[in-house]
């Protein structure tokens, strides 16, 4: 491994200081710890183990779905909605790394610019770095860091997924899958995988032709299906309410609220 400037930037003995600064909500420290985790450095793992006891009760929401369906725009709207409720919001936006060069173009935050100057919003782009499943390997630990840093709502945006990238179910409490009109017929709605494990299905771009058919096809097979137009904000209050309802049921029933019976959250 090449010696990175990041490694040299993090001197021995800084670990405890970083833990304290993360707990105090210091953005520089939070960012640095996430980098240590992404780089799989021993310091990062040591810090997370110290942060677990500081963990608060954040609401962790996963937004997944096919590429180009509007996940980032939807998250932008959700951030606005949760900020209106007075919540401190963290966003972990995952994009794919090149399997050839290891490089990545992380462009999710282009859609989230209204929040860049809000000190109660933290947005971090993460590259998959070869990890399969729709998230980066460090995403789960990054959630713990944000939780310890006092973020009350944590939104995770997966890569544009296919049908089998469902890791987010094991990290988020509530998972919404985003689809757009015109991507398939009823048989697509019946298939196993992504649509099966999501708690809420969002038909975004609900103003496009074909949205009615997509909604009808999905409603035959999936429990909660919402029509949203993220670009205008239409349907966002209903989405926030559906997330709250799922969280309420989850709290009542414990992990059995997950339709697949897989473990939810931590």
């Amino acid at each position: 491994m090449t010696v990175s400037s990041l490694q040299t930037r993090n001197k021995p003995g800084d670990t405890l200081k970083l833990v304290e600064r993360v707990k105090a909500g210091n953005v520089r420290a939070i960012s640095r710890v996430i980098t240590l985790l992404e780089n799989r450095e021993a310091d990062g793992i040591a810090i997370v183990s110290r942060l677990v006891s500081a963990k608060r009760d954040a609401m962790v929401i996963g937004i997944t779905g096919y590429p180009g369906t509007g996940k980032s725009t939807l998250i932008d709207r959700l951030v606005t909605a949760y900020r209106r409720l007075g919540k401190k919001v963290g966003v972990l936006a995952v994009d794919i790394s090149s399997p050839v060069t290891g490089g990545a173009l992380l462009g999710d935050r282009v859609r989230m610019q209204d929040h860049t100057l809000d000190h109660d919003v933290y947005i971090r782009s993460m590259a998959t770095r070869g990890h399969h499943g729709g998230l980066a390997q460090a995403t789960r630990d990054a959630v713990s860091v944000l939780e310890a840093g006092g973020y009350e709502v944590i939104l995770i945006e997966t890569i544009g997924t296919g049908q089998n990238e469902v890791d987010v179910v094991n990290v988020a409490h509530t998972v919404a899958a985003v689809v757009a009109p015109g991507l398939g017929d009823e048989v697509q709605a019946m298939k196993a995988g992504l649509l099966e494990v999501a708690h809420i299905i969002v038909v975004n771009k609900g103003d496009l032709a074909g949205a009615d058919t997509t909604l009808r096809d999905l409603r035959d097979w999936c429990p909660t299906v919402l029509r949203i137009t993220a670009a205008t904000g239409e349907g966002i209050p209903e989405f926030v309410a559906a997330i709250a309802e799922h969280q309420r049921l989850r709290d009542l029933r414990g992990s059995s609220a997950c339709p697949t019976g897989k473990g939810i959250g931590f």
Partner: peptide, 20 residues
């Protein structure tokens, strides 16, 4: 080009302020 050289590029797009 930086992506192709193995860099993780955080692309912010247009009209940023120095603060952003």
């Amino acid at each position: 080009a930086l992506r192709d050289a193995g860099t993780e590029v955080i692309y912010t797009g247009l009209h940023q302020t120095p603060e952003q």
